[in-house]
């Protein structure tokens, strides 16, 4: 079923919207959560919570042409939130890796408790992504939005793991410089 029809089902409060969404995107959403949670039952919980949240958010939202990004955003947020509640020792290896890498994007001397306008910061990240070529942008998003591992990226791009790591490192450096230039003190 196409996304627009699924959204129509949500809008008319038809419960089959959830079954249709699960059929089309369930596996991908679960896998997105599984990457950071490394625990099948928590991932399934995350997936189910995503449907509940989508039910609550549609309407007013009508993500006809961006249903997967819309659902994925929710899943990501729920999964990260779940991880935040876990102690650092219980976090997945991939999340620890991603978290360390993100640390490098935050300009040095930044106050970890500072209140940053997240909307403005997201805009800055968007403008950073816009400045990248398609390949760099896709690599960055696959790593930090879809949580792909270096091995997966290496196989996807046909690059050596070392090239993937180096490219990601340079992209993180560029993001840090971009944010610094935009005046962010995170």
């Amino acid at each position: 079923m196409d996304d627009s029809r699924i959204v129509d089902l949500f809008l008319s409060r038809d419960e089959s919207a959830i079954a249709q969404t699960s059929e089309k995107y369930g596996r991908r959403l679960r896998s997105l959560a599984l990457h950071v949670l490394e625990d099948l039952s928590s991932s399934e919980e995350c997936e189910n919570d995503t449907y509940m949240e989508a039910w609550r958010l549609i309407p007013p939202n009508e993500p006809r042409s961006y249903l997967f990004p819309f659902l994925g955003r929710i899943t990501r947020h729920l999964a990260i939130d779940m991880c935040k509640k876990r102690s650092a020792a219980k976090r997945s290896a991939l999340l620890c890796e991603l978290s360390d890498e993100m640390e490098e994007c935050i300009p040095s001397g930044a106050d970890p408790d500072s209140n940053v306008d997240t909307i403005v910061l997201t805009d800055a990240v968007n403008s950073f992504l816009k400045s990248l070529n398609s390949e760099q942008r896709t690599l960055f998003i696959r790593r930090y939005w879809y949580f792909d591992s270096v091995t997966e990226l290496s196989s996807r791009y046909g690059w050596t793991q070392s090239k993937v790591k180096t490219t990601l490192f340079r992209l993180r450096e560029r993001l840090r410089d971009h944010l610094k230039k935009e005046g962010f003190e995170l």
Binding site: R73, I80, L98, S99, E103, L121, T122, V125, Y144
Partner: peptide
């Protein structure tokens, strides 16, 4: 860094 990772969700 986790907040930063979460924020990337909004791109």
């Amino acid at each position: 860094s986790l907040d930063m990772l979460d924020l990337i969700g909004g791109i």
